[in-house]
Design a protein around this nucleic acid. Sequence first.
DNA 1: CCTGTAGTGACAGTCACTGACACTACCGGA
DNA 2: TCCGGTAGTGTCAGTGACTGTCACTACAGG
Lengths: 189, 189
Amino acid sequence: MEGMPRDGSQARARLRAAALELYRERGYDETTTAQIAARAGVTERTYFRHFADKREVLFDGEAELRAILVDAVAAAPDDLAPLPVMVRAFTAAVPLVIANRAVAQQRAEVIAVTPALRERAYAKTASLTDALADALTARGITRPTARLAAQVGMAAFDRASRSWADDPGLDLNTLIAQAADEVLALGST
Amino acid sequence: MEGMPRDGSQARARLRAAALELYRERGYDETTTAQIAARAGVTERTYFRHFADKREVLFDGEAELRAILVDAVAAAPDDLAPLPVMVRAFTAAVPLVIANRAVAQQRAEVIAVTPALRERAYAKTASLTDALADALTARGITRPTARLAAQVGMAAFDRASRSWADDPGLDLNTLIAQAADEVLALGST
DNA sequence: CCTGTAGTGACAGTCACTGACACTACCGGA
DNA sequence: TCCGGTAGTGTCAGTGACTGTCACTACAGG
């Protein structure tokens, strides 16, 4: 194309949209990166300049969530126990989660039926968990305990998210707090 | 080769060994599946008959661990709370873990420095977690709670494993119990 | 107007992975 | 003893993800 705008973020956004559409229409395995690029009006080579691989296009914007979580951990009161700190962090992210609900659900549907994408999703979650563990470590918590708290907090958030996905009428903030309570109740009959 | 033994499990074992060696010698990215096959004395096509992809060769034998965990969950007393059930399950797996320690460490080293392999490791862990959640569900525990307990239990086991990897002189059974206690203490300062 | 820089297209190449077909060792029974 | 089925393998051809390289174009700042 002759007069293509030189602003890369536009092409990037079109690639994101095209990929989500195609993955939903034809399935991930039946979609080629060339098709994604074509629908976005660029070449395959340009696709790989914006995204590291065929999966990554579905996992953009993770940085924003990470920043919110990490900042919330850093901002929590000094004397707060690890699990309540996690609750605060995820609570801080609730507005973003709610804002992205519509697209997130479409993505989740594709990911659910595609092993390769589930694998990437696990890796992204693990990456977020690492970031949370680092943030807890910065609060003076020992690294092994920080890792444990981050993983447990993420498990609680996962539990809350699923309930909320089933019934978006529920209050996600409340669900997060309840999930944390549920963790502490796992030791008692 | 003319007189190659027709027993596939031998080739499979050689492929496993060859892959671990090459991944350690040259790195995962610098190793081709053709090289693995060559070192094992078979063709590349045969490699892909035994393993689904280039990563899977490092994650064989997961089925054994899964069976032990699931059986232990099923065998636990009816009135035991979810987290203690997880402790029992992982405790039942300790002998296997100890027996595999030497090879497991070599694998862990490669995985640690290879994003593609870490990703697969996360997926394997998630798969085990799903199996544990299913086993808990069979005990009458609600699915969301079962998922939560399985993830929390896995986090505790991860915490215990890492301590044990750092100092194999410690008792892994004790570390698992301590990690579970630590989870329940995450809510208190 | 000139120059550096970022985004892109074009092209060639490697390698993971798959489908199809043929061959060979072995196991069971006729 | 022979014979047919089966499992494991080799060979070959092909697709598609991903990379390196080079040239070109739009735009910003001086």
